[in-house]
Structure formats: structure tokens, C-alpha cells
Design a protein around this nucleic acid. Sequence first.
DNA 1: CAGCTGACAGATATTGAAATCTGTCAGCTG
DNA 2: CAGCTGACAGATTTCAATATCTGTCAGCTG
Lengths: 194, 194
Amino acid sequence: MATTEILTAERILEVTEEVLRRHGPAKATVVDVARALGVSHGSVYRHFRTKAALREAVTKRWLDRTSAVLDDIVAQDRDPEARLRDWLAALFTAKRRKAGDDPELFATYMVLTGESGEAVGEHIDALTGQLTAIVRSGVDSGAFAAADPAVTARALFQATDRFHDPCHAREWEQPGIEGEFEAVVDLVVRGLRA
Amino acid sequence: MATTEILTAERILEVTEEVLRRHGPAKATVVDVARALGVSHGSVYRHFRTKAALREAVTKRWLDRTSAVLDDIVAQDRDPEARLRDWLAALFTAKRRKAGDDPELFATYMVLTGESGEAVGEHIDALTGQLTAIVRSGVDSGAFAAADPAVTARALFQATDRFHDPCHAREWEQPGIEGEFEAVVDLVVRGLRA
DNA sequence: CAGCTGACAGATATTGAAATCTGTCAGCTG
DNA sequence: CAGCTGACAGATTTCAATATCTGTCAGCTG
């Protein structure tokens, strides 16, 4: 609000997220963002080269908040199978909540997925990295069998695609989805045991 | 070509499939189909109540051809694990080939998936039915462990979603996809063993 | 002079009028 | 009279004119 405040990238991201939340990815313009900030749109371009870069930066911030929550589960000192199950359930819950609570931001995320933006790739790499850490700790403790933890982690991630990939978002509200999730998790966890 | 030929539903389906293949789902009209048949479009409506019904019937025919091929694998007299692996690989290959060779018909199929048309649901039910048969024979022979073969079959189907769900079609041509497929199949097959 | 503005060119989106399509049905035809 | 036709109303799509947006940059301002 204070007109004397310095225009920072962070402030632009905050306001852009709010504008996207209100207008959605199809209607939110750089001019809208500038207006909400009380500056000219040229100033926004001083901090972000293109509209796509701005959209990607907002999405990155948004995705990073999920990664941070999941990272807490990875860091816990519990048996790997419990952590794996918790992690997968937390990912499903987080994605489902985002799709339901922030439909406009979620739509932005889906646009970005379609554009195969870098932020989405990095997010997936971060998540499979977390899974790799859990798998590796299970292999170390003798609970899991996996020749290559990174490959197995990717397989786990892909086998549960239906419960975190945005292209399946519509199915997340259908009845019975919880049971289907449990069945898939049981199957892959069994496949992971030593 | 013979103008004396009787107009049957089957003949309409053949021609519609050809028209869809040429024009794609967005541009193919009922009038186009009628023109290709050499009749008025009113005659087409005599056999199919709506354009959506026609589109669905064509897709059903197209999907049934895949189901038939897979059914041969189910009926084989080999060990269940080999049949399961073959079946999953055949499904992936068939879907990938359809997406590559018949992009317009595949697009029609995706439109239908979005509309959640009945034909797609039936196709999925048919496929999980086939999987259930394989799982059940594995349970009978003592090779597999599954409390409820139908639930497990559905989990197998969903865990391999990435390799047969049309919303992932774009990823099917990327390098490394074969390895990812193998990793997921290995994981779920291990999870199924007694 | 660092940071911002606002006019501008080209690209993209919106709009509304015209064209086409879907689905119906009274009547034609063999 | 069973099966087909083609005119029709309402819905949808196309298209071109118009408006808006993106990204740049010369110059203003504090």
C-alpha cells in the first residue's frame, strides 16, 4: 500500500499470485499486475523478462511450499515404510487440496505443465529426490530391496501418477478414490519390500 | 460406391471412421459423413440419435479392436507372470501405436474421455476384467498373492496409467520411456508375487 | 543516474455478424 | 409403407474488424 515502498521481485510475486488467484491464468495480464502494484507495466518487465517467466516464478514459489512440507516427512526418524506411505499420502492430499482450494493457481500450474516449463521439471526432480532418500534409507536398514534407489524412486512416483499428476485432477473428487489410492500404495510398497 | 447398397449402421461407422481419420474430430461433421456416403444427413440420424452417439460408436469399434488383441494374451496357457508382463507391454504398444498412427482418431478418443462417454468406461472395465482374469489365475496357481483379484487388477491398471492413459500420450515418444515402463512393471509385479 | 513511465509496434484476444452445423419432421419415392 | 430427403429453427463455428496485451525503449523524475 505504501507508495514509497520499493518494488521488489518478491513483492511482484506476492501480488501476481493474488491476481492469478482472482482472475485465473487466462485473464490475468501483466497490466493487471502492474495496476494492483500501483506501477506501470514497464516496471514489472524490469524484474521479469517475460510474462511466462513471471508465471513460472509464481508457480515455482507455490510448488516449493509443497516440497517443503514433504521434506519434513523425509527428515523424520521413523521406519522407511511408514515414511514412504506418509509421504505419498501427503503428496496426494497436498495436490488435491491445491486443486480444490486454489483452482485458478492450479490451472496456471497446468498451463505451465503443458508448456513443459522448467519449474515443473525441477519440482518433479525435487520430489523424486525426496523419494530416493526414503528408498535409500530403507535399503540401508534392510527393509527395502532396490538395485538403484533413484530408478525405483522414479518408478514409485510414476506408479502413483494418478494421485498427483494434474492431468488426473478431475478424478480426485470421485468417490472410492481413497480406496484406489490405498490399493496402489499397498501394491508398490509390497513390491519394494526386501 | 454402389448406389443400390443398403445404408447400414456398420457402413456408416466405416465411413465415419475414415472421415474422422481425414478431418479430425474438430472438423468432421455429420454432413461430411453423409456426403461421403452419398446420402442426406437425415439418413445418418435415422441410425444414430446424435453426433455424439455416432462418435462414441466409432470409438467403441476402434477400442474393441485393441481389447480383442489383448484378450488373446489372457487366453494363453502360460505362467501368469509372463502373461501379465506381455499384456501390459501389449497395451502400452497398442496405445502408443494408435496415438502415433491414427492421431485424429486418437484425438476423437481423447474428446470422448473428456466427455466421460460410456464407451471409454466400458473399455476400461473390459481391460480391468482381463487383468482380473490373469491375476486370478496367478492366485490359483499360487504365483500371486491378492486378497481381492478385482481390486488388485484395478491397482495394477492404475499404477501403469502413465503408459496407457491418453492424457500421457505426449510422453510416450520421449527417450527413456521404455526403461521407465520396465521399472514400473518390475515394481508392481514384485508387489504381486506370493 | 537508477528507477520508473508511457507511447509504440507487433502479437494476441475479443466481439458480433454471417455462415455452417445439428437435430427434427412433414412429405416424397420406389 | 419403410426408408430417404431436404427445408427449417436453434445452436455453434468462422471470420474479420476492433480492442487489448506484450515487450521495448527513449526520455522523464527525484
